[in-house]
Design a protein around this nucleic acid. Structure first.
Length: 322
DNA sequence: ATTTAGACCTGTCAGC
DNA sequence: TGCTGACAGGTCTAAA
């Protein structure tokens, strides 16, 4: 679900709120979410650590911890962070009452009592009425309790997300499968030209390959190709120099505007406060099949490429001829 | 050596 | 209104 812009936007929010905080403990409600090392070691190692920075690499969110460790979180399709103010209580009674429902739903969170002074803090943080909050805290798989009483929730309905613990010495190993950051100075037209020259497959598949460029997913691949007027089925090594130049420009443009608009939300993506991003209103083709192209009026098409839905304008993005 | 279908999971929405 | 099936921001791996 989240691609680079969604991850980057949330990471920036988390950085302003979490740097300097101390983790008391992690509560794990779905064990497979912890991908490395085992759950017991993970919990033992992070307890008591300070969060020294929050960063991003590709689609990974990184929590740097004291003691030269870092937590790498991949949100996959439906993973989200939610920062719960202090004073809220965690309710796990479902674990005993209905173990089957517990496995999918996880714990629920209940507001502080009116006598609790931390209610004042919670109230100052907008929108935290119980019915609204219950949707934002649903499907909690891992809950990081901070020493100051706040909780960082990792919610993930589909359970595809993964959380790993690494030492800083292992950082190269942790990200060995990732290509350059598309918004860094390493991502040049020359680099893209060289990478595409090796691509025997469709340009759409190459854009999705994290070992070539890190962070582009299904939305921004379609949007970048639309920007450049390139058909998604074009062989990567067939693009002209002019097309590569436009594509490079398109990748940078759609990712940058995606971040500026707080990311793209359909069903699942939410920021740290559980709010949707509004980038969808700025998009050209993604999920707009059977709607007219904003440029020429031709109906946008949707076709599968490598089992991913792919959206494009058949008039603006031609496969053959000029 | 590459492609591709299947697996991992749950929720939502279009269409009959 | 109710059921069924298609589909979902991702990535790994077994099978072809």
């Amino acid at each position: 679900m989240p691609e680079m812009p969604e991850v980057e936007y949330t990471v920036r929010q988390l950085r302003t709120s979490l740097v300097g905080a101390t983790i008391d403990e992690a509560m794990v409600f779905w064990e497979r979410t912890i991908g490395r090392p085992d759950v017991a070691t993970f919990r033992a190692e992070i307890a008591g650590r300070h969060i020294t920075d929050v960063r991003r690499r590709g689609k990974f969110s990184l929590l740097d911890l004291s003691g030269d460790l870092f937590v790498a979180i991949h949100r996959r399709m439906t993973g989200n962070f939610f920062l719960l103010p202090s004073g809220w209580h965690i309710d796990t009674h479902l674990r005993e009452e209905d173990p089957v429902a517990w496995r999918t739903k996880g714990p629920s969170f209940i507001p502080p009592h009116e006598s609790d002074e931390s209610l004042v803090q919670a109230a100052s943080l907008q929108v935290l009425t119980e019915p609204v909050l219950s949707t934002k805290t649903a499907h909690c798989r891992v809950c990081f309790n901070l020493v100051d009483g706040r909780r960082l929730l990792f919610t993930d309905p589909r359970k595809f997300g993964r959380i790993e613990l690494w030492s800083r010495q292992q950082e190269a190993e942790a990200f060995k499968g990732l290509g350059p950051e598309p918004l860094s100075e390493n991502f040049t037209v020359a680099f893209l030209t060289e990478a595409l020259a090796k691509g025997k497959t469709s340009i759409k598949q190459v854009l999705l390959a994290q070992d070539i460029i890190a962070g582009i997913g299904n939305i921004y691949a379609d949007e970048a190709l639309s920007y450049a007027g390139i058909h998604p089925l074009r062989r990567a090594d067939s693009l002209t120099a002019a097309e590569i130049h436009l594509l490079h420009e398109g990748i940078v443009a759609v990712l940058t505007t995606g971040i500026e608009h707080g990311g793209t939300s359909f069903n699942d993506y939410r920021d740290m406060w559980g709010e949707a991003g509004d980038n969808y209103s700025h998009m050209r083709v993604y999920k707009k099949h059977r709607q007219p192209c904003g440029h020429c009026g031709t109906l946008i098409e949707r076709i599968p490429i490598a089992q991913r839905s792919t959206h494009f304008c058949p008039a603006c993005q031609r496969l053959t001829g000029e």
